[in-house]
Simulated scan of single mutants.
Amino acid sequence: METSKLIGGRFRVKDHAVSGAMGDVWPAEDTKLGRTVALKFLARRRLRQRGAATEFTDWTVKRFERESIAMARVSHAHVAQIYDTGEHDGELYIVMEYIQGRSLASHLKEGSALTLERTVRWTREICEGLGAAHSRKVLHHDIKPDNIMITKQGTVKIVDFGLASFADVTQSHTGVGTALYKAPERWANSPGSVHSDLYSVGCVLYEMLTGRPPFGSPQDDAMTVGRMHQDNLPAPPSAHRPGVPERLDCIVRFLLAKDPAERPHSAEAVAVVMSEVGHSFGTENVSIPTGRNHLLDATESNVGHSERIQELDRRIFELELRFGPDRQEVIETRTEHAELTGRSGDTRGAAALYNRLGRDCQNLFGPHDARALNAFEGVARWIAKSRRH
């Protein structure tokens, strides 16, 4: 594609593209408004070169255009916004919000499970964004860690709404999606629904809690994974990660129900319940409802440590963005964040935070630096506490 001239008469491509199966995403300067945007191209030529039928390619183009128009109506803090569409050098493109950050998949690849606070907060934000899209009759079709961006401020942005249906040209139009996160009914060529998106949220939540998806692995055959989604029941997250509250086990169980009618009725309902779960961290004698009606009808709860944990988490993102990871204020804030995470009841999350801090301090200051040794002492202390519980 020719990128030496302005695209659409106003966008100047900079840096390099991130390539995917369906096209490329380029960072670009909007010369008219003076801001950075992302240009996402649908590579029709690439589809044809890979053997996609002309009928499917034409259908893909029409769907691309229709979904772009639909998504332009969705405006929400946790959804990447679409600004415009166009055509350049024979390829269609959409102009999207440029997101500084990295994917949830990248966070999960760091090797330790996320803290419960981040898990609950990010799940709430995913559901808030999905709820806004669902209210405009827009389904995602491919909720997965790669399609959930975490900004440098530590908040969620869902990407690739509607476009994910084009991810695999070898599947039927109603069967597209990513095997590890695809609802059982969609393996039977159902076009999907709000409940299908919520099943995928359940898969993502499961992976955030345990470090693994509920069924299969990326190396497994897709049809094998599909049969697991249709026939198998996953172990509760607490079986893989001691200390997961019973209520989170309950929420995961409802989200992963085989029958779509047995799942929560809306993303907004799940967001409200996740907010309640977050506020319960660090409180004593918190009631744990186990029925579906209780899941859908959130009630008030006492605010524990959650607000302070969230404040510290966001401050860490901001400090690292401003000063880099080696600032003493960053180290102290990360230490406070780990301690409060442990006191909230997430002892394993505290150990994971201290372990990551210790490794980072070794890389930044040397293997025998006191800050690294103090962090690893925190690891041992919180692991010991987790075993006593």
Rank of each mutant, 00 (worst) to 15 (best):
I158W: 05
V159I: 14
V159F: 07
V159P: 08
V159C: 07
D160I: 11
D160N: 14
F161Q: 10
F161I: 06
L163F: 12
L163Q: 10
L163S: 12
A164Q: 12
S165I: 13
S165C: 11
F166I: 13
F166Y: 11
A167C: 10
A167L: 14
V169F: 15
T170I: 01
T170S: 15
T170L: 09
Q171P: 00
Q171C: 06
T174L: 13
T174N: 15
G175A: 14
V176F: 13
G177M: 08
G177S: 12
L180K: 11
L180E: 04
Y181N: 02
Y181T: 04
K182D: 08
K182F: 08
K182L: 11
A183T: 04
A183D: 11
P184A: 04
P184C: 05
P184H: 05
P184L: 07
P184F: 04
E185I: 01
W187M: 02
A188M: 15
S190C: 12
P191Q: 15
P191L: 12
G192D: 14
G192R: 09
H195I: 00
H195C: 03
H195S: 14
H195G: 07
S196D: 14
S196V: 08
S196N: 14
D197T: 05
D197A: 10
D197P: 09
L198M: 11
Y199W: 09
S200V: 09
S200L: 13
V201G: 12
V201P: 10
G202D: 07
C203M: 10
C203R: 14
L205S: 03
Y206V: 01
Y206W: 05
Y206I: 01
E207Y: 05
E207V: 00
M208E: 11
M208A: 06
M208D: 14
L209W: 02
T210D: 06
G211L: 07
R212S: 15
R212G: 05
R212D: 11
P213E: 07
P214G: 01
F215D: 03
G216M: 05
S217F: 06
S217L: 06
S217K: 15
P218K: 14
P218H: 13
Q219T: 07
Q219C: 02
D220P: 02
D220Q: 08
D220A: 06
D221S: 10
T224W: 12
V225I: 13
V225R: 01
R227Y: 14
R227L: 13
M228G: 04
H229T: 06
Q230R: 07
Q230K: 08
D231W: 13
D231A: 08
N232F: 13
N232V: 00
N232W: 14
N232R: 08
L233Q: 09
L233T: 10
A235Y: 04
P236D: 01
P237M: 07
P237I: 02
S238F: 00
S238K: 07
A239P: 00
H240Q: 09
H240N: 08
R241C: 00
P242G: 02
G243C: 02
P245A: 02
P245L: 00
P245M: 02
P245C: 02
E246F: 00
R247L: 10
L248W: 00
D249S: 03
C250S: 11
I251F: 06
I251K: 01
V252G: 03
V252S: 03
V252A: 03
F254G: 00
F254P: 00
F254V: 00
F254S: 00
